[in-house]
Design a binder for these strands. Structure first.
Lengths: 195, 195
DNA sequence: AAATTCATGTAATAAGTTACATGATTCC
DNA sequence: GGAATCATGTAACTTATTACATGAATTT
């Protein structure tokens, strides 16, 4: 499972508690693999059961004891195995494409409103990306350059992807304003030069 | 729920059985909202319970009776309401970005293999899109041009998105071959002109 | 005085996937 | 003879989300 392997990936850098993991998730992989605190705890239980991690309890008086998880050799092997194996992606699910698909029963005004609000949402995503908080420098700065490179490569993908969506949305808005739908299919497909 | 509303969307064109719906899903919205046969039957039960659809049983002797589902006024209202309301997208989950994120512990050869196999996968997706089987002409050809336009607009998004991924993958492959990772973060972020 | 941080979890629910179950007819 | 089509579902399982539960210490 992806979440389990992402946890193993972070534990490879050193032992962490469930709480630590949640924090680092939120400032690093959140844009392509968000995780709830509760889900992380469940995964940790699962990984322990499989022998991929081990728990070291650190007693505290004023708070619940900290449970520091360490990756085992079995966990390292499992991570390595998973990282090199091409995996079939879970199918994409885009709700707003369902809305567009059935937009035939909406007015131009309604569908434009939908597309414009979507464009604004994507714009906000781009701003957050470019604001430079993910991956958070605190967590990235001590890594060797090659590791940093891969962390930021995923950010680059996110930005690239968001710009593509935004460009497409703007073009769709223009086509609808231009009433290209009168041409049916021909109006919907953009001309694309070969990759 | 999105699946429920997609079903309502199709039932708006006329009554369908669960079996019919599965067939039309597979040649129309599959690339952004795939659905299992079993899931469609569950949704139909759910929609019936909510009064959004009604079931007309058509007796057959050699096979199970056909259950033709009709959309009700309540269902039409619900669809209309849902279609115009901007909805927060479910967060994207991309397993291969987790692999890239932790690719620091792989060799160049291993990571290149991963990216190249991903590129091939995307290439196959593009070929399938451009082969013109989704949305299947049989289902689209009788619709008015404006409806056809929106059906094909979703296809256009899929193609656009796939090309973006492919371009990005090729660039990432080139950067790794070029050992841009020696520059750390600076090597990972592409120059982007404003949208 | 209120919000945030630290630190742990469990339980319930929702959504989607996979496996199981049946069985005649028709096409290759 | 075997695969595909037609036609229905149920049950188990996995994954992720939301809600619930506790509670001291510190910051605003």
């Amino acid at each position: 499972m992806s979440l389990d392997h992402a946890i193993l990936g972070f534990l490879r850098y050193g032992p962490r508690t469930g709480y630590d993991l949640k924090k680092v998730f939120d400032v690093s992989v959140r844009h392509f693999w968000p995780a709830q605190q509760s889900q992380i705890y469940q995964s940790l239980t699962n990984l322990t059961d499989h022998g991929h991690i081990e728990c070291e309890v650190i007693a505290q008086t004023d708070r619940p004891n900290r449970k520091l998880f360490h990756i085992t050799n079995s966990g390292r092997d499992e991570l390595q195995r998973w990282l090199v194996a091409p995996i079939a992606e879970k199918p994409v699910r885009a709700q707003f494409l369902i809305q567009i698909f059935f937009a035939g029963c909406l007015t131009d005004t309604e569908i434009l409103h939908l597309l414009e609000s979507k464009a604004k949402e994507v714009q906000r995503v781009i701003e957050r990306f470019e604001h430079g908080e993910i991956p958070h420098p605190t967590h990235a700065k001590d890594l060797p350059p090659r590791e940093q490179f891969f962390w930021y490569l995923t950010l680059d993908f996110g930005i690239d992807n968001a710009y593509q969506s935004l460009r497409w949305l703007k073009q769709a808005i223009a086509r609808i304003r231009n009433k290209d739908y009168e041409q049916g299919i021909a109006g919907a497909l953009a001309e694309r030069k070969s990759s």
